[in-house]
Amino acid sequence: MGRAASAYYAGRDPFGRAGDFTTAPEISQAFGECLGLWAAVTWQMMGAPAPVRLVELGPGRGTLMADALRAVAEVMPAFRSAAEVHLVETSPALRAAQAARLPGAAWHERAEAVPAGPAILIANEFFDALPIRQFVRREGTWHERFVADGGFVEQPAEAAPALPEAAPDGAIHEVSEAGLAIARHLAVRLQAQGGAALILDYGPAGPGFGDSLQAMAAHGRADPLAEPGSVDITAHVRFPALGAAAREAGAATHGPLPMGLFLQRLGLMSRAAILARSNPHQAGLILSGAERLVAPEGMGRLFKALCLCHPGLAIPPGFEPA
């Protein structure tokens, strides 16, 4: 499930008020600025290698990266000079939007194609759009759920990944094999070449069961089966599984922790207050956007932050123990 995602993104810009959904970089420029400074401090902790690959997976319109680069150019120009921008994007429409904001960037179809070397990677709402498989517990055995003839069908699970041995009848277990494969690749790379990957997405911090498959269109819920390829199909990111896959492949992990807490530790609200004072006519919008990112009733609790990094790297900013 979720296999229509590539067709959905290929020929459209789905972001913003005129699209189907709005992501954190479009809500507040302070988001990208704080992540840029997070990357710069993490680079210093790595020993300031030059060059360093600054990579974004699924960069949307390029808003996050543009905000990040503007901030680091002002605060830490040495990092900006060392950073080579690499974008992992398959959509021609979105590549065009990114090129307008990020001249000089390099594009790749897959994360595995990014050139070797120390790297800092950011993946904001990337893993939720990857395909998933759903398994349903029926009378003590697992069945896989498929889409056929416009609806869902189930059949005994074959060639299935490792599934929980114990689960109540009717439980739904979701697996993103694509997401786990990328987490393993990043872990192997970071362990061998140095660096860190920051993952920001929505999903539970702990293990559990449930059907999280959903579709969005025009900022509202949609039927994921009604018009394949025309709606945004997503599923919750299973952070415990991502972290376990990364650790098994040799990386250290920090988090997941609520995104609101992470952003507050990075100073997002302080930065938003500065922006509001500089733009008094937009102050209300600026502050409400920042609050939406950190508030538990907004995106602050549902969204999580997870860091994968080289085992020898100190704890990156924002992930310090309470």
Rank of each mutant, 00 (worst) to 15 (best):
M1N: 03
R3H: 08
S6C: 00
Y8C: 03
A10D: 12
R17A: 15
E26D: 15
I27K: 10
S28P: 11
C34I: 08
L35V: 09
A39Q: 05
T42V: 14
W43K: 00
W43F: 02
A48V: 01
P49C: 02
A50M: 02
V52Y: 01
R53Q: 14
E56A: 13
G60A: 11
T63A: 15
L64R: 09
D67F: 07
A68C: 12
L69H: 09
A71M: 13
V72W: 03
V72H: 06
P77R: 04
A78C: 02
A78Q: 09
R80P: 05
A83F: 04
A83T: 09
V85L: 15
S91D: 10
S91E: 08
L94D: 10
L102I: 07
A106C: 14
H108S: 11
V114P: 12
I120N: 04
L121A: 14
N124W: 11
D128S: 11
Q134V: 12
F135M: 13
V136R: 14
G140V: 12
T141W: 05
R145C: 13
F146T: 12
E154Q: 07
L163G: 08
P164F: 00
E165C: 00
H173Q: 01
E174H: 03
S176W: 05
E177I: 02
A178E: 13
L180V: 04
L180H: 03
I182G: 03
A183I: 01
R184I: 00
V188C: 09
Q191A: 15
Q193E: 15
A197V: 07
A205D: 12
G210S: 01
L213A: 08
A215D: 06
G220M: 10
L225F: 12
H236R: 04
R238D: 14
A241W: 07
A241Q: 13
A244G: 06
A244N: 04
A245D: 07
R247K: 12
E248P: 01
A252N: 04
P256Q: 13
L257H: 09
R265W: 08
L266A: 07
L268A: 08
L275M: 14
A276H: 03
R277P: 01
H281P: 00
H281F: 03
G284P: 11
L287N: 06
L293S: 05
L293Q: 04
V294P: 02
E297R: 03
M299H: 05
L302R: 06
F303W: 07
K304F: 10
A305I: 05
L308D: 02
C309A: 15
P311D: 08
I315Y: 01
G318L: 09
A322K: 02
